[in-house]
């Protein structure tokens, strides 16, 4: 079986996945999305020959990944994760709506489209609140709004930024949590690894990409239930479900579509890349 690994930047994870695939005897076709084009004239068979029998979508760019997946799926290829899952998980609001619908506990969220309405919306939520971009990761542009003055300044800055996505104001309640959150890595209906992510000194955000560090997290029945239901409601697949411990129980705040697991691999004894490849093989044979 030929695995197509689509990427635009080789991170530690893509190297680990390629190594794991080779170790399992899979032919490994690495495709840099920046160097290809996609042609609607291609037949499904031609497309499969060029890309592989099963495709692992690992683009760091949400829109590149989404569009490539849409094309390949339309040509009949199995892409993990599929387009609907990619679309949902690449947008925090779409994820929130799915979590809400499935009654997966998640922070209260308010959406608005102008600086003025955003400022009014925060009065409803109360300070402090958290302003996030609807796309993007690694805690980038995630801002804690401690008071009205900070909110005014941050919203004014966002209002000056180019790009229509920057004029979508996604504001969440500031959840009272310990200085850590939980990253679970889900493959289908199973959690393959879970870690606590601790915020680095001088920051409140827990992202490993921001210098946070990981520690082993025991999977409680509550965590398992909430994380697996979150994964299922966004459509399932290979996902990074991020959750917080709050006074009202575990809350899911994000589901990641091209999950990074370097931090988890550094503290867990599980062969995460190997488990991911096994899951792909199982899915490809379905």
């Amino acid at each position: 079986m030929k695995l197509g690994l689509i990427y635009d930047r080789i991170r530690w994870e893509e190297k680990a996945l390629a190594t794991a695939a080779e170790a399992k005897g899979l032919e490994n076709n690495r495709i840099d999305v920046k160097e290809i084009y996609l042609d609607t004239d291609w037949t499904p068979k031609e497309t499969q020959k060029k890309f592989g029998d099963v495709i692992l979508q690992r683009c760091i760019s949400y829109f590149r990944g989404l569009h490539t997946t849409a094309f390949l799926e339309s040509k009949g290829l199995k892409v993990i994760n599929n387009m609907d899952v990619s679309l949902t998980c690449g947008n925090k609001l779409l994820t929130t709506m799915k979590l809400e619908k499935a009654k997966v506990p998640t922070p209260r969220t308010i959406l608005s489209f102008t600086e003025e309405s955003a400022l009014n919306s925060i009065e409803t939520l109360g300070y402090p609140a958290v302003l996030k971009p609807v796309t993007g990761s690694w805690g980038r542009m995630v801002v804690q709004l401690k008071d009205k003055e900070t909110a005014q300044a941050m919203l004014e800055m966002r209002g000056q930024m180019e790009g229509s996505l920057n004029q979508i104001y996604y504001v969440q309640e500031m959840v009272q949590r310990p200085p850590r959150d939980i990253r679970t890595i889900v493959a289908g209906d199973r959690i393959i690894a879970a870690i606590y992510r601790y915020a680095p000194d001088g920051d409140w955000r827990t992202n490993i990409a921001r210098g946070g560090h990981g520690d082993i997290c025991k999977v409680t029945s509550e965590l398992e239930d909430v994380a697996l239901r979150a994964a299922e409601t966004v459509g399932g697949g290979l996902l990074g479900v991020d959750a917080m411990e709050s006074p009202r129980g575990i809350l899911v705040h994000e589901v990641n579509n091209t999950v990074e697991f370097k931090g988890a691999a550094s503290v867990c004894s599980v062969d995460i890349a190997g488990e991911i490849i096994d899951y792909m093989l199982k899915e490809a044979r379905r």
Binding site: K34, F63, R140
Partner: peptide
């Protein structure tokens, strides 16, 4: 030269 981080970059 590597690409600079895009608005839609993430995991």
């Amino acid at each position: 030269p590597a690409e600079t981080v895009g608005e839609d970059w993430g995991e």
